[in-house]
Amino acid sequence: MIDLSNVSKTFTLHNQGSAVIEVLSDVSLTVAPGECVALTGASGAGKSTLMRMIYGNYRAQSGVIRVGGVDLAQAEPREIIRLRREVLGYVSQFLRVVPRVPTLDVVAEPLRAVGVGSDEARTRAKELLAQLNIPERLWSLSPTTFSGGEQQRVNIARGFAHPYPAMLLDEPTASLDAANREVVLSLIEAAKARGAAIIGIFHDEAARARVCDREIDVSRFTPGLSSGSEAVERYNESAA
């Protein structure tokens, strides 16, 4: 379902003396349907960079990134958009939404985008929000004012609304209490059971051991010292 071969990534910082930073080289990996693979490695090893490349958010310098038959390294924007709508879900660490849109609609949106009717999409959104313990009185409010943990749970609800055949999870259990962590892990297990191919980053080792079938240490794809990639990550975060 997710298939990478010989993928490499460098950042060229034109406005900082054209510094070229090699972050990843020659990454090859495969994730089958129903399988959950953890990306591991020290901070700065390139885990998030790799995940962003699989989502098409970062551009690969070379190699093939195939998800559900589409090569994200070569695909046109509209092909990537279709892939993200129908096939490839991504739960990032940060919630990014249009201000003013009610939480219920934020969560229902991925379903509306694949043509599910408004009522059905909202029903599913309500189920997920209830499951993730977001109080009902908040559903009609925009999540932009919510606490960090609440925003993360809204993000997870949104990410699990549509049954994507492939999913990328960036720290889905970070900053959650035990009860909510349990809900998220059971959502991941359910997604695996229906055949989703999942790649995740988990600093929570117990969570990783429970849901992941394999681990891939990203630092073996990191050329030389990896200290530079963290700087680039910061550079890009602040730029975005």
Binding site: R52, A239, A240
Partner: peptide, 25 residues
């Protein structure tokens, strides 16, 4: 040119990098 989030998060051209990094937080 390209996918919006890709151009904004991983700009390739010097000018785009300057534009993106000039946005006030």
């Amino acid at each position: 040119n390209g996918l919006t989030d890709q151009v904004l998060d991983d700009p390739q051209h010097a000018y785009t990098q300057l534009l993106v990094s000039s946005v006030l937080q």
